[in-house]
Structure formats: structure tokens, C-alpha cells
Design a protein around this nucleic acid. Structure first.
Lengths: 225, 225
DNA sequence: ACAAAAGTGTTGCTACTACACCCATGA
DNA sequence: TCATGGGTGTAGTAGCAACACTTTTGT
């Protein structure tokens, strides 16, 4: 192989929360290298892809059936030796989504797709453990500086839902009085005239996120807890 | 060309300040495409590079004679059509340095190297204008959240030197009383028993940055002005 | 004595932390 | 009536923004 040409893959760390636990979407490899190890969904950049973003989205749909979700580029990994087949540059992406919106389907070159708790992962192929750890660190930042959390909950949500997302991502409890006060003060929540129903106790008020109001905020850290 | 193999380049946006002006290091291309246009220093990932970071450092030395400086990965650009020769993925790097520490030397495949004010750039090759603009945006963040600014000034500096860096990067004036108060309060500055000499007026006290003290800081934004 | 930049303090306000109890609802 | 989360208030503190003048030095 000419030294000017290398393989480029686009792999995605897709996060979702499930009952207060942060989980990552993984596929089980059917072929070598790392046959039967769990790995990040992703694959080679294709000549038809207009952009890296598009390639990431395409691979995610092909390998897991998850599509049309929040996606952003994370970091590019290219150390020599990270893929036994030869120099491979991997552009890693971060995805945020709600599990219940998708029915997972493995592609034909995988023997499984599943959500794994980020704090209890299996051994991963390649340097994917490092990539997941980088993604988690970045998500912790993002959630305090951007409205990223709203990609992890439904359009209508209770303040508790929102707080559980923060606790899952940050990995620690936050004071619920201060959390509510601060979030309501930001002005990005629209109070709805509805309450959640699925409980056998006091129903909670539902809110919606207002992107327009977020855009009007000064650009200092907005959601630090 | 097989659809699995693509060209990968590693290009660097190197910033330095000169008398309160933020400048970028550019090279003038000797060959097509974009012959005689100014471009970011960089080049193809080589099979011998152990990492992308190493490749960026190597290319920067080869093309400009600037070496051993602060370098960090920025973002990866890979849209179809960004290079007329065919799909090219570019891993962009950010470098921070002091101009006076280097004597610029163009490589044999460039017809020039020079510093350009970031607010007064020539037309750049490829999508390099977009890359510079992204780098500048990122630098504005970094300078408020990390001790990045100290890479742009000498080891011994006056508070005025430091403030000029912030003003150059942020592109606006900052209140000098609050600036000094806040920076001294962070505890990352060591007051030296020396003063600057080169002036015909009152000499200013010199300070040094203490990395150990910075590491002891909580991880909230540290230098917001 | 002048030019130039060095250096300094206060006040008002906003926003954060820490902390514990009553409320509303469905079963 | 009980279990469960829903929902609320205050006091103390820390840190920020806004603001202008005096000091030191070399010439």
C-alpha cells in the first residue's frame, strides 16, 4: 500500500440513558480481527459519502438500525498499530438518542447489537475502550455547556427525568432544589399544561425544551451543577 | 483508487501574538493545486509516524522550521470535493507558540512562509479559511478554560503581556483592574523578584506561570473575562 | 515636569451552596 | 393511611462587573 493512502473508518459512540444508567451501543463482531468481541458501530468511509458526518450516520443505520439522531464529531484516532490490518485512521463520533425510539437490528457482518452500561462494559475491540472513555468525558462537559441532555429524553419530560439524565451522565447525585431552581431560571423550559400519568403517586408537571430561548442565552456555561 | 483507501493529511493552524495582534503561520504553495496560494502547513500522514500528533509535529518542522511547541488536535475535515485531487481527509491541529523563538524556513515545496494577522488573511487554498476560523473559535474557548495563553508568552512576563494576549485572542478589551485581580486570585501566577527592563517608564513586575498550582484548581472555567 | 504605563479598592449585585420539610396523588 | 416522589424557601457567602485615580520611572 502506498504510504499516502490509508484506511479511514468512522465509528460512533452512541449514548442513551436507561433508568438513570448511561449506556453505550455496541455491536458484536462476526469476523476477524477481534472476532466475537464487542466494538463500536462504524465502518469505512465510502467514496459516495459527501461528508464524514454523513458517513457516520450511514454506518450507524447500517449496523444498528439507529438513524436520524444527534451526531457530532469527537476526535480522530490514528496511532500506528491500533488496527492489526495496518494503519487505520478512525474519526470518532458522539451520538445521543432515546433507546425506545429504535428497534435495534444487527447488520449481516455483526452477530449482535446491544446497549451496555458505560460503567460495566465488556472487553472492547481495537482501542474502542479508550474512545468510549474519551466520549464519556466529552459528554460530561457538553451536558453542562449545551442543551445536549435534551437529546436523551422525550420532547415532553418531567424535571425528574431531566435530573436523572444529569445524574447518569455526571455519575453523581445533584441537589434537587437547586437543580430545579437553576433550570427553571435559565428560561429554556416551557411549562406545559400536562402532567405525567404513568405513576401511582403524585403526577409531575411536564416541560418542553425551547431551543429559541436557549439561543438567546449568553454563551457562558449554562447548566453547571 | 479503492474506496477503502483515502489520502490523509495533517495540517496545523499555528497561532502567535505580535504586539496585541493574533497571527497565523502560513506557507505559500509552489505546486498545483492552488499553486502560489497561501495554505496551512501540513502534509500527508506517513507510514512511519507513530501517531497523528507526531505527524503534525513532523510536518510543521519540515515546512516551517517550527518545532517543539504546544500542539493539540482540533477537528477532522473530510467533505467530498474539498481537494480537487480526490477524497482527502485532513486532521487539523492547533499550535501555540512565540514567534521570536523560531527562525522560519520554508521547505523546498513551498515558496514562502510567513505570519499573517488572523483578521487580515489572504485567500487560502482548499477549505483552509474555514479551518482557521474554526481554530480561532476554539482558541477563544481554550484561553478561558485552560492555561493555553501561557504558550503565547515567554516564561517570565508582565501582567500587561498576559492581558494583551487575552485581548488579541478574544478580540476585545478587558478591564485591567478586574483582569489583574482575577488572575492574581487564581493562584497560578508566581510573583518574581524581577521587573521588566525595556521601558522608558515605570518597569512592571514579572511573573511566571505555575503549572502545579493550575492542576490544583477545581475544573470549572478558570480564566473567564 | 512630563509622558507612559503600573498599580490599586469599593460598592452593589447576582448567583451559588447548603440544607429539610410539607404536598398531592393513587392504591 | 401509606408510600412515593413532587415540589418549595431561606440565609449566608463568594465572586463578578463597573468604575478613575495615584504612583513610579526614565527622559
Amino acid at each position: 500500500m502506498s504510504s499516502d493512502l490509508v484506511r479511514v473508518t468512522v465509528d460512533t459512540v452512541a449514548f442513551a440513558t436507561q433508568q438513570g444508567v448511561l449506556e453505550v451501543l455496541l455491536v458484536k463482531r462476526k469476523y476477524d480481527p477481534f472476532k466475537s468481541a464487542w466494538a463500536l458501530p462504524g465502518g469505512f468511509l465510502d467514496d459516495h459519502d459527501f461528508s464524514l458526518d454523513e458517513a457516520a450516520a450511514r454506518e450507524l443505520v447500517e449496523e444498528t438500525n439507529v438513524g436520524n439522531v444527534y451526531l457530532e464529531q469527537l476526535y480522530t484516532f490514528g496511532d500506528k498499530g491500533r488496527d492489526p490490518r495496518g494503519r487505520t485512521v478512525t474519526v470518532a463520533y458522539l451520538a445521543l438518542l432515546r433507546q425506545e425510539e429504535f428497534e435495534l437490528k444487527a447488520s449481516s457482518d455483526a452477530s449482535g447489537v446491544a446497549w451496555w452500561p458505560v460503567n460495566d462494559l465488556p472487553t472492547l475491540a481495537f482501542d474502542h475502550a479508550e474512545i468510549v472513555s474519551y466520549a464519556h468525558k466529552r459528554l460530561k462537559y457538553k451536558i453542562e455547556y449545551s442543551p445536549a441532555a435534551f437529546n436523551l429524553i422525550p420532547a415532553k419530560f418531567t424535571l425528574r427525568d431531566l435530573q436523572l439524565v444529569y445524574e447518569a451522565v455526571l455519575g453523581r447525585a445533584v441537589d434537587n432544589r437547586n437543580f430545579r431552581k437553576k433550570f427553571l431560571n435559565t428560561g429554556v423550559l416551557q411549562e406545559l399544561d400536562e402532567t405525567s400519568q404513568e405513576t401511582s403517586f403524585r403526577p409531575a408537571r411536564l416541560y418542553a425544551f425551547s431551543e429559541e430561548d436557549f439561543d438567546r442565552l449568553p454563551d457562558k456555561p449554562a447548566f453547571v451543577f
